[in-house]
C-alpha cells in the first residue's frame, strides 16, 4: 500500500526553526538523512521531496482553454505543505511509524494519507 506523508509548516514552526542553534538544525537534518537512508534500504521509499517556498508557487487556471497563472497561494493560508514522502509499506501502522520519525511530528505537523489503488472486490 502506498501512503503520502505530508509535512506542514506554519508561522510557529518557522519561528521555532529560526530560534534553533546550528547544532540543533544539523540534528534535524541528520534525522531526515537517516530516515531517507532507512527507507531506501528497506525498499519502502517511492519518492521524497522538500518543496520550495510558497512564494515560488504558481496557481494555474484555464481561460478559454489557455493556461493562466497567478503567483502564490492565498495569503491567508497559514499552514503550508513544506515537503512530502510517498512510501510503499505493509500497513498504515507502519506508515505512521515512519511519519513519527519526521522531525516536524514533534509539532504535530505531519499527516499520513492512504493512496487509492486499483484493487476491488467482486461485488
Amino acid at each position: 500500500m502506498k501512503y503520502l506523508i505530508l509535512i506542514y509548516s506554519n508561522p510557529e514552526s518557522r519561528a521555532i526553526w529560526d530560534r534553533l542553534s546550528a547544532d540543533q538544525r544539523a540534528g534535524g537534518l541528520s534525522a531526515y538523512a537517516a530516515l531517507n537512508e532507512d527507507l531506501t534500504a528497506s525498499g519502502e521509499m517511492v519518492v521524497a521531496e522538500a518543496l520550495a517556498d510558497p512564494s515560488m508557487a504558481k496557481r494555474v487556471s484555464l481561460h478559454d482553454g489557455q493556461p493562466m497563472t497567478t503567483d502564490g497561494p492565498f495569503a491567508e493560508v497559514k499552514e503550508l505543505v513544506a515537503g512530502f514522502y510517498v512510501v510503499d509499506c505493509e500497513s498504515i501502522e507502519r506508515a505512521v511509524e515512519i511519519a513519527a520519525r519526521v522531525p516536524e511530528a514533534d509539532l504535530g505537523l505531519v499527516e499520513v494519507r492512504p493512496c487509492m489503488d486499483l484493487s476491488g472486490f467482486e461485488m
Binding site: 502506498k2 525498499g43 519502502e44 517511492v46
Partner: peptide, 15 residues
C-alpha cells in the same frame, strides 16, 4: 507491475 520505482524493487529483492 506494482507502480513503484525500479530502485525500490531492486532494494527489496537485495534486502
Amino acid at each position: 507491475a506494482f507502480l513503484v520505482p525500479e530502485t525500490t524493487v531492486a532494494q527489496r529483492i537485495s534486502r
